[in-house]
């Protein structure tokens, strides 16, 4: 049993009186793909924001390996190995697809401060960025501004940025939301590929239960900001509380 790569301890955030994430304690190991499920508004995206640093917790701590990263800026966490793709597409709209991806490669190589070399002449960085563009099947649109892409391709670019960060912890927030039926499998294949590696920690927020069943080693259920279930997919799916939340059985009571 390896040590956890990511761990949150009693992680809590309040917005005014509303507790969006409430005392979530949870640890994730390398090589494991955990699906994070729960109804809309359960606090999944907010929990991601706390881990990747866009939000500061009211209480609780976040550890990457042995290191307490609770006080780190989002950029420092990214460089430390926490990578995040966003639920709502969050790109550099007027930059090209290749430039979008190159930015992520460049950041990882700590090369963003170079101000007198020509970016276009750094073949190494560009070739590496191009590999992620190809892996996400965006080669044909590499020269187009991100804003000009159809929604499905923007979702792919969102994933390409995450891949290009080469993080230790991958966080996917509904990566296939709004994608067409024939586009989604490409993204899920990519996630499966990362999982094959068995060295990375993967967190996947996903609503489609067939996807979860096919990919997840483990399921964590959030509900009203609290962690209500955590375990092997078969066991978690069978829990009464999960059936209640998910199948709407007694939904009123649960809410």
């Amino acid at each position: 049993m390896s040590t956890p790569s990511l761990r949150t301890e009693r992680l809590t955030i309040r917005f005014g009186g509303h507790v969006a994430v409430h005392g979530v304690t949870c640890a994730f190991r390398p090589g494991e793909l955990t699906a994070i499920v729960g109804p809309n508004g359960a606090g999944k995206t907010t929990w991601f924001n706390l881990v990747s640093g866009q939000l500061t917790p009211t209480e609780g701590r976040i550890f990457l390996g042995e290191r307490d990263i609770t006080g780190l800026s989002p950029s420092a966490r990214a460089l430390a190995g926490v990578g995040r793709a966003f639920q709502l597409t969050n790109l550099f709209p007027r930059l090209t697809v290749l430039e979008n991806v190159r930015l992520a490669v460049q950041a990882r190589r700590r090369a963003g401060g170079r101000l007198l070399s020509r970016a276009a002449a750094d073949r190494d960085t560009i070739a590496e960025a191009m590999r992620y563009v190809e892996r996400t099947r965006l080669a044909a649109v590499a020269g187009l501004p991100a804003a000009a892409l159809p929604h499905g391709d923007q979702r792919k670019l969102e994933v390409a940025l995450l891949l290009a960060m080469e993080p230790q912890v991958f966080m996917f927030d509904e990566p296939t939301a709004g994608m067409s039926v024939d586009e989604a499998p490409a993204i899920l294949e990519l996630i499966a590929e990362i999982r094959e590696d068995r060295s990375k920690t993967i967190l996947l927020v996903e609503h489609k239960m067939d996807v979860v069943r096919a990919l997840a080693d483990r399921i964590v259920v959030l509900h009203n900001g609290e962690l209500v279930a955590d375990g092997r997919p078969g066991a978690v799916m069978a829990l009464p509380i999960v059936r209640e939340i998910y199948l709407g059985v007694g939904a009123e009571k649960a809410a």
Binding site: P74, A78, L79, F92, P93, L103, L115, L116
Partner: peptide, 22 residues
């Protein structure tokens, strides 16, 4: 330069620039 692209990235989407490590 590489810095020039980072500047444009900050203009385009400051939050994402920070999130990928700048």
């Amino acid at each position: 330069s590489p810095l020039g692209t980072v500047l444009m990235a900050i203009r385009e989407n400051e939050m994402r620039a920070e999130a990928i490590g700048y």
